[in-house]
Amino acid sequence: MRDITLGQYYPGNSVLHRADPRAKLVCAILYIAAVFMCRSALAFIVIIAATAVSIALSGIPLRVLLRSMKSLIFIIIFTAFINLFLTTSGELLFRFYFIKIYSKGIINTIVMILRITLLIAGSGVFLTYTTTPIALTDGLEQLLAPLRKLRLPVHEFSMMMTIALRFIPTLVEETDKIMNAQKARGADFGTGSLLSRARALLPILIPLFIAAFRRADELAIAMECRCYHGGEGRTRMNVLHLRTPDFAIMAFCVILCIAAALINTYIPIFTLIG
């Protein structure tokens, strides 16, 4: 339980760690766009190289990144199989009863695996590994601030998100404590039929819910004591500033997008998908 890391933030002090969360959000969106624009092998090579540079910049060990892939391996394999068996264009390469594999299917599979891996690595490097969840919601709130003109409660949403994120570790810790207390009284969570296992969760869930409600209550009172009244006229302690490195990484991602588009149109060699 203790090892659950939400958002997988990996402490560090790299350029990407220090960058403005808004810049990183923009980068992540541009990067994802670039990955989806890739249609040729050359474009993929460019984007893989760019990803490698970003990983090096972020200072995140490769094994940490690979570990996050491990939890998604099922989705990757599933997508790969769907693409492999359900694509029915190109040359028929292999046939075994109802299983037919086409050349196009193999290419699609490779492209899909590349895309998913790149997406995980890229969004990890730009966002989840280098940005704390709190900084992320802060950045999101400010990026979405113009929507306030449309009377969308941007601040309230981001406050809710911040509070939710803030309390996940607390609740995990609380769950851990309650589980330990019940284990100390001989509770057994791992064995028995499904029903008895579900029943074994009650001694954890009931105290946990009670604790969550109690905390919510206390938090509401504490916020009110400090005169919280929503986002209007509220200033912030950590004012975000875009600095040169932030513009540099955003420019890098814009160039990446343009490069991917240009390669598709002007250097159409090794085109993988239409």
């Binding site: 609380e174 404590k177 309650i178 330990n180 207390a181 019940q182 100390a184 009284r185 009650l202 001694p203 954890i204 009931i206 105290p207 009670i210 604790a211």
Partner: peptide
Amino acid sequence: VMQYPEYQLF
């Protein structure tokens, strides 16, 4: 008996 054991009652 853990710290603040009253939170384990269910």
